[in-house]
């Protein structure tokens, strides 16, 4: 039983936390800007590499490097919005989705040209897991879970208690009415991109610290992240949290039933299933 938990459940929850970070960002873009953010994964990659650069070049401890990568990636997200998406606002949203694909390719290319296509990591060597009465968890894994709790609670407090957080919810809920209330859509969009960019950096960083850093790392989590967001219900932060965790668990547990190569396909299968039987997801989200 403990082996089952150590080998499948713990990795599943850790992977799921990384998906949850990404799925929360995806669900915010989907519900407020109303388009899919296909650059989400590659922006996470970028965040992971910015943290890597900060830790190697400035000699910062990795978690401090993350604190630097968050605002930088957030600024990058706002910049891509201003450069590529702003002029598409009044056009069909699918064009913005397409544009995010262009952004994804550009970000990936920058990573590959600057840092190459090899694999690296934040810290050399193997960290041994701590043993809690047979339960084996690494420190980084614990920090991942803790960070997820902090991010989700912080985001929930921001969205439910602050004026601009409520404005974000209002715009996700009813964009035209938000405009009639005089809510400045452009500011809400910029604010959302700031948060989404920060979340990208966080998901990329924790993906990097729990696995490895490589140029395709972000693109590889885009399907499970979207699956998590849609499983939870678009627009639901708590949905993205639960959905992301569930996708991570399913992926890890799937190897008990199907060949390992198809781990990545299991998230996709869930995505199809949710679209087929319950497109609003577990928490009754939106259908964009």
């Amino acid at each position: 039983m403990l082996d089952f938990i150590n080998f499948y459940v713990v990795p599943g929850i850790v992977t799921g936390s990384i998906y949850a970070f990404a799925a929360i960002g995806i669900t915010l873009v989907f519900s407020i800007m109303r388009h899919a953010h296909l650059a989400h994964g590659d922006m996470a990659t970028m965040g992971a590499y910015i943290a890597l650069a900060a830790s190697t070049m400035l000699g910062l401890p990795v978690y401090f490097a993350l604190l630097l990568a968050i605002p930088l990636t957030a600024a990058l997200a706002v910049g891509t919005d201003k450069l590529f998406y702003e002029h598409l606002r009044k056009k069909p949203k699918i064009l913005t989705t397409m544009s995010t694909l262009g952004t994804a390719l550009m970000l990936r290319s920058i990573v590959q040209v600057v840092w190459g296509v090899g694999t690296t990591s934040y810290a050399k060597g193997i960290t041994r897991p701590n043993d809690w009465f047979g339960l084996k968890i690494k420190t980084n894994e614990l920090i991942t879970l803790l960070a997820l709790a902090v991010v989700v609670l912080g985001l929930a407090a921001f969205l439910n208690r602050t004026r601009w957080g409520k404005a974000m919810r209002a715009m996700s809920d009813n964009r035209d009415l938000a405009l009639l209330c005089g809510i400045d859509n452009a500011r809400v969009i910029t604010l959302t991109w700031l948060i989404v960019g920060g979340l990208c950096a966080i998901s990329g960083f924790f993906l990097g610290i729990n696995t490895e850093i490589k140029s395709m790392m972000g693109w590889n989590i885009i399907l499970p992240a979207f699956a998590g967001a849609i499983l939870g219900g678009i627009g639901r932060i708590e949905g993205a949290l639960v959905g992301g965790l569930m996708i991570g668990l399913v992926e890890e547990l799937s190897v008990l039933f199907i060949p390992t190569e198809y781990k990545a396909v299991s998230a996709f299968a869930i995505l199809l299933l949710v679209l087929l039987v319950r497109p609003r997801g577990l928490f009754n989200g939106k259908i964009i």
Binding site: F30, A36, L38, I94, T97, M98, F268, L271, L275
Partner: peptide
């Protein structure tokens, strides 16, 4: 499955199809 919804879902799912076929 996808054409009941707006285009973004098709975009995500077709990325998944291509990925699944590659695997």
């Amino acid at each position: 499955i996808c054409l009941r919804f707006r285009g973004d879902y098709l975009a995500i799912v077709t990325i998944g199809v291509a990925e699944a076929i590659r695997i």
